[in-house]
């Protein structure tokens, strides 16, 4: 199919983009296009005006700002994938980005586009949820910053109002030496995950978990943290029993179901993947690795 008629605009500055978004009738913002373009081609959407953000240079790039690593919303997944800074400071994102689509789509797909599309099983929203990312949203004369958990309102529904543009995504890296793991299950390489699990883990000097983040993508209508599982691990030595119990918490999160993938299956994947991801995160933890101990970690091979 061919896209329905629309008028194309390619602003060069954020102000210009904001002004177009505020004044044009039926506007729609175009980021990397890897989700919106198929919808246009299938005539599932029919904006009167398409505002292309790809030429707004200010929306691109990765930088460190204070403690944060900040991504322009139009930063392409390819840039994240190849960024030494991301690899060094946001290893969870570096791992997750490999699972995003295919090379041919990562070359154009953007982090902001993915967050605004907000597919519940997409990798970048899952990582943003796992890391409590902060999202900078701008409209003419107004700038607000939302936590990912506030931004992700519901199924494919971000907390964006008419005329607003997501401009930045700010990640606060975990301290050096933390453990991380991102696992997902999809039918084929590069497909949207059926379920994805992101785990971040910090141990104290005594080898007990002092900070934990466990997030599920693809289970609920948005990526969700699993506080029960996190609480179960906190203060523990993350032994096999602790891991099983935390994984079981993941398997109890209320899940969406459809005829192809029923809710119970998503829950099962959540517990299976959590049971596999937590030991990986543990093994990557500097404190744990230094102790050289795997005896009680639940690693089986």
């Amino acid at each position: 199919m061919k896209a329905p008629p629309f008028r194309y605009h390619a602003p060069r500055t954020l102000d210009e983009a904001l002004s177009l978004a505020a004044t044009l009738p039926g506007p729609r913002l175009l980021a990397g296009g890897q989700s919106l373009m198929p919808m246009l081609n299938f005539r599932l959407v029919g904006p009167e005006n398409l505002i292309d953000l790809n030429r707004v240079a200010a929306l691109s790039g990765i930088r460190e700002e204070g403690e944060d690593v900040v991504f322009g919303a139009m930063t392409r997944q390819r840039e994240i994938e190849y960024s030494p800074l991301v690899k060094a400071r946001l290893p969870l994102l570096a791992e997750a980005i490999q699972w995003v689509g295919h090379r041919q789509t990562r070359n154009r797909g953007t982090i902001g586009g993915s967050l605004c599309h907000l597919d519940p099983s997409a990798e970048q929203p899952t990582v943003a949820m796992a890391m409590d990312a902060s999202l900078v949203i701008v409209s003419p004369g107004r700038r607000r910053e939302l936590a990912m958990r506030t931004f992700a309102v519901d199924l494919m529904t971000p907390a964006l109002e008419d005329g607003e543009i997501l401009t930045e995504v700010r990640f606060r890296p975990w301290p050096p030496g933390h453990g991380w793991a991102f696992l997902e299950f999809a039918r084929r390489h590069g497909d949207y995950a059926i379920v994805a699990v992101a785990v971040l883990l910090e141990l104290d000097a005594s080898g007990r978990a002092s900070r934990v983040s466990i997030t599920l993508g693809g289970v609920a209508s948005t990526p969700v943290r699993v506080p029960d599982a996190e609480t179960r691990l906190l203060g523990s030595r993350v032994g096999a029993d602790d891991i099983s119990a935390a994984a079981a918490c993941c398997g109890r999160v209320e899940a969406l179901g459809d005829p192809q993938v029923p809710a119970w299956y998503r829950q099962r994947l959540a517990s299976t993947l959590a049971a596999r991801a937590i030991p990986i995160a543990l093994s990557r933890n500097a404190a744990h690795a230094a102790a050289g101990s795997t005896s009680d970690s639940g690693l089986t091979s």
Binding site: Q98, L183, F185, G190, D191, R276, T300, S301
Partner: peptide
Amino acid sequence: AAAPLTPCGASG
């Protein structure tokens, strides 16, 4: 009792 650590077929 224990699921294997290395998932087979999980993509990537």
